[in-house]
Amino acid sequence: MSKPVYVLGGPNLNLLGSREPEIYGRDTLEDIHQRLRTLAGSTPLELRQTNHEGELVTWIQEASASGSALILNAAAYTHTSIAIHDALKACNIPVIEVHLSNPAARDSFRQVNYVSPAVKATIAGLGAYGYELALMAAKSLTGQEET
C-alpha cells in the first residue's frame, strides 16, 4: 500500500461554511474532505485540522516521516509561525500550500508568508477547488496518478 497524502489544516478551518462565507465560501471542511476522499481513488489520505500550532508542527513532522506528500493550509499561522516554516524546511516530501482566499490581495498583515518559501507550490484564491487541484498535483508528484 502506498504512503498517504497528508492534508493538514490550521486554525479556524473547522468554522468553514459559517465563518466569513463571502471570503472562504460555504463549503464546510467536511465537504472538502469528502470531495478529496472521492478524488483520491486508491491513494490513502490523512485528513486533519487543529487550532494548535504545536500540534500542526508535530503532524508536519509525522507527514514527512510517514507520508508521500503534504497539502497544508496553515491558515493564520501562515503569517506568524517560524516553527511551521522550520518544520516545512525539514520536510523531505513534496508540500503544497493551499489557501481558499488570495492572501496577497487582502489585509497587509497577510502579506507576510512564512510557508511559501518552504514549499514546492502554492494554490491560492480558488476556494475549495484549490484542495482538489493540490491533491491532483500531489498524486502526480508522487507517481500515484491513476490512468
Score class of each variant (00 low, 15 high):
Met1Glu: 09
Ser2Tyr: 13
Pro4Cys: 01
Tyr6Asp: 07
Asn12Tyr: 04
Leu13Thr: 03
Ser18Tyr: 03
Ser18Phe: 07
Arg19Ala: 10
Glu20Val: 12
Glu22Gln: 14
Ile23Cys: 09
Gly25Leu: 11
Thr28Pro: 02
Gln34Met: 14
Leu36Met: 11
Gly41Tyr: 08
Ser42Phe: 06
Thr50Glu: 07
Asn51Ile: 10
Glu53Arg: 00
Glu53Met: 02
Gly54Asn: 09
Val57Cys: 01
Ile60Cys: 08
Glu62Asn: 11
Ala63Asn: 03
Ser64Gln: 05
Ala65Trp: 07
Ser66Ile: 02
Gly67Lys: 03
Leu70Ala: 07
Ile71Leu: 09
Leu72Cys: 08
Ala74Tyr: 04
Ala74Trp: 04
Ala75Gly: 09
Ser81Thr: 00
Cys91Tyr: 01
Leu100Glu: 03
Leu100Thr: 02
Pro103Trp: 00
Ala104Ser: 14
Ala105Phe: 05
Ala105His: 10
Arg106Tyr: 07
Arg106Pro: 10
Ser108Gln: 13
Arg110Thr: 10
Arg110Asp: 12
Val115Lys: 01
Val115Asn: 06
Ser116Lys: 11
Ser116Cys: 10
Val119Ala: 06
Thr122Glu: 10
Ile123Ala: 05
Gly127His: 08
Tyr129Glu: 14
Leu133Gly: 04
Leu135Thr: 07
Leu135Tyr: 08
Ala138Gln: 04
Ala138Asp: 06
Leu141His: 08
Leu141Met: 15
Glu146Ser: 15
Glu146Ala: 15
